[in-house]
Nucleic acid binder design. Structure first.
Lengths: 206, 206, 206, 206
DNA sequence: TATGAATGAGTCTTCATTCAT
DNA sequence: CATGAATGAAGACTCATTCAT
């Protein structure tokens, strides 16, 4: 039973983490004040500092949340609904597309945002951001490996998984800059073409 | 005599823009205080506000600087030294690689950083960021067009140029997250493979 | 024990309100900086903003203070010491005269000052200033009504009460402008003459 | 010819004075910045300081403008159009009523505003404010003297003139506080009643 | 477990003023 | 006469953080 409530919204600490997660996503780390967080979490300053020693610690907790929820929120539904391994990769990308649509191309990937905003100013956060990327790429690599001989044996699946993330992040960035989906969709199209070519077929006419 | 110093780099306004450019690049927009800017520019707060009505206006001036200097700083040297059009594309990417090396993978692309940090919170800045991307991609498209029939006639050169930027930005992001060049280099390798495949050849062994 | 100090004048919030009240009175709203306020209140900027969201909110609190203290500070002592209702009116005026004397005709009526300084620039403050006037006039009207048939039945006591405030404020203003009591005293004399005439008697020789 | 252009709007100095006059009237002295003044006057900071050493000097020039224009703007039209001396007094009051109507009871008497805002913080300004009052009262006294034996011989015309100003200022103040003309009109009504009583008649029924 | 109060350095911005041209 | 540039102190306000209860 309790297992189902990994995050209990009724608990102050969790409400704070979720509020911080959303605000860091929407406005970034620096532009989010802890006053904003406690207000959104319907908590009090003192409470926040009871649970988190500093703003940085709160950020780390948010990054842990993302790591813990990568599978249940992003991966598991894809595995449940899609069987073709290559299509699982594109379904993952399509999740980010849906988020772009839902926010009018305003928000993007929270991990990518924080990576570029923070650089190496908070090294512990940077490590967790890298771990988030690592986890994401691990699942893509797994999918690609499931595709078996549909790709050349020599193809480095881990590197291609990294490339998929590269395309996703670069596409989201440009989509946000110009406020439309075209750069993201273009990236996905090129990636599909690349996969076709890798699998030995001729490229689809564009 | 004085006529010769019409564009005097020691002029306060220029010093302020250059200082802001560097600090926004290194620490981001929010994390940079105007006190930092004037100190680095060896100017005074009052002077900054004589030239720029707000911090946002200063940012816009910085983004204008990037637009005006895209050609002389990034493009022109490549055109001067490299004749093969496809290699010009990779030389452009290599410029970003060199910046990553020089900064120990700490800083990345200033335009990409600001795009993700700011989102749509400063709409005028967002437009200028989009224009910067647009300018960059225009040059890549030009290079690809110069490559003539080395790519299929039907290939959408503009979309591929967009894809090149996508790969660059996505690669820089992951390189910064994990503090090494591997994701960037991997992205470039995959892109080279893609170009080989598009041009009808077999991929180089990886 | 602590129960006895529920209203502790040494409490930071109260000290801030009282300091602001005095400074707004002495120098006006705009000319008073919040740095002045916290210094006089022996508090810190952060504390001020813990209790008051803006400078305007602090002003509103000061205006509330005046409303709450109209009776205990100005009215009650008069009622306690003077029984003749008409003389209660003049005793109220005499209170302002004493304040002029005490400050060398430098300060006047804090409500009048703020009314003219602020106009409608802070509408919520304007409403509270109007309420202060309203409260003041209500007491004067009450005194006039207690005077019963010493004034003609048809005389509009509320309007005369308004006139009393008019004379007080106009007299204080000119007394401050020329730095002597003469305009104030002249106004009171004319008002006495008016009251004599209204009550059917001949005016006292001036 | 030149006599007709006592204030030449085309001259920078005059434009500055008129802009300052309006802004001091609308927002007060402290709330008006010299940047506001030069913008409204379509002048430049340097120019303002060419003509006026300090903000205080500018204020003094504005107060001189009011003194110089009391007769041509306020008094002369009344003398030209109204012959009854007592009605000239009420015509003067009616001029202020018209200003209240025109501004929705937002602005009042510029001299009164500045008197209460500044107190004795700028002594030279205070003197000029007192002189403005003095000039105004002198004309009212002149009108009352022209009324000859309509008032008792013993009546101190100068003191009554002072009282008229008192009623005007106190009425304008309350009208601005409660954003309607009633306090001003009530003051004028009471003053008329007073004049009737002074002239030996019975008060008009109210 | 939670919180109301307090802190003071720091934020962006505005200010009256100066000065060389 | 007039002005563009520069100044630095001061403005209102926000911040992450601390602490006693």
């Amino acid at each position: 039973m309790a297992r189902l409530r990994q995050v209990d919204v009724s608990k102050t600490k969790d409400r704070i983490v979720l509020a911080a997660r959303d605000l860091f996503w929407e406005h970034g780390y620096e532009a989010t004040s802890l006053a904003d967080v406690v207000e959104k979490a319907n908590a009090k300053t003192g409470s926040l500092y009871y649970f988190f020693k500093t703003k940085e610690e709160l950020l780390l907790a948010v990054l842990d949340w993302y790591m813990e929820n990568l599978f249940p929120v992003l991966i598991q539904p894809i595995i449940a609904h899609i069987s073709d391994p290559v299509e699982r990769v594109f379904a993952l990308l399509d999740g980010y597309r849906k988020a772009l649509v839902a926010t009018g191309c305003t928000y993007g990937c929270p991990i990518g945002n924080l990576t570029l905003e923070l650089g190496d100013s908070l090294p512990r956060a940077r490590e967790k951001l890298a771990s988030n990327f690592e986890g994401w790429r691990t699942w893509v690599r797994k999918f690609l490996e499931e595709a078996g001989d549909r790709f050349p044996e020599k193809l480095d699946r881990a590197e291609v998984a990294m490339f998929v993330l590269t395309v996703m992040e670069g596409g989201v960035m440009q989509a946000r800059a110009q406020q439309n989906l075209e750069p993201f969709d273009a990236g996905v199209r090129q990636l599909r073409t690349y996969f076709y070519l890798l699998s030995g077929e001729r490229p689809k006419p564009q």
